[in-house]
Nucleic acid binder design. Structure first.
Lengths: 124, 124
DNA sequence: TCCATATTTCAAGTATTATCGAAATAACGC
DNA sequence: GCGTTATTTCGATAATACTTGAAATATGGA
């Protein structure tokens, strides 16, 4: 993922209402929740909800699936995962990473030896 | 972390320039980088950089430490960690979480047995 | 003290985003 | 087809955020 996509995703989540929607979907699981239910749970005007759902869909963080008159929205876990990976990618130069970040600090493809890491310090 | 703080943090990262700054600091490690150097690396007008550094500081994602005429900015790894935890908190009801998300899906304090999870489905 | 350097604050212009009533679209059951 | 329900699109308004030149502040060295 490059920076433009990542910042677009983060901006989409950087709004209390959209974050609440996304979180609800993340916690709801892959089956998703239909728009009307989200409306009720979060007490939003339909037009407002629709605006935010469209935004989250456009950036790829959620997907809608039509089922009769309902549209079920679900979090796109792969997109979320890519976003988390981007944030923690190559983080903190092997220093004191904390629990969540530590888990993803050095993805296999980019792992380097301590020696190699050493030799690149202060360069560029 | 509650939703307001989380969305504020995410909004701060939801801008290509600020995300680039944050990422640079995350990868630079705890010692940080001084403002002028960030300016050079990212080719930003000083006033623009200052605006974004202030924004990131205000929400708590980075900290500045004065050292002579320089101010070194460093990522606040704890804040970043709290943010990642918020996003993945109680995610996806035990379903098909992916690599990064899976690592943090069920923090010890909130872990539940499969049976307990089962009995709560479709309720609320 | 005076100059140079590092960084921030101010101010003003520009651009983007959020909200929501009302109207439009779409799908179902009768 | 017709009424009903679910959701989106439109349009207008309001609010917020971004950029940057210029001026201000702060630090260190001569």
């Amino acid at each position: 993922m490059e920076i433009k996509a990542a910042s677009t995703n983060l901006a989409a989540l950087g709004h209390a209402t959209r974050l609440a929607i996304f979180r609800l979907l993340v916690q709801a699981g892959p089956e998703g929740v239909n728009a009307g239910l989200i409306c009720d749970k979060l007490k939003l005007a339909p037009a407002t909800l629709s605006f935010h759902l469209a935004h989250l869909s456009r950036v790829g963080l959620i997907r809608g699936r039509q089922d009769g008159r309902f549209i079920f929205y679900a979090a796109d876990y792969a997109a979320m995962d890519a976003l988390l990976a981007f944030l923690t990618d190559n983080c903190c130069q092997g220093a004191q990473c904390l629990p969540k970040t530590a888990a993803t600090a050095a993805p296999p493809k980019r792992r380097r030896t301590a020696a190699a890491r050493q030799s690149r310090q202060r360069s560029e």
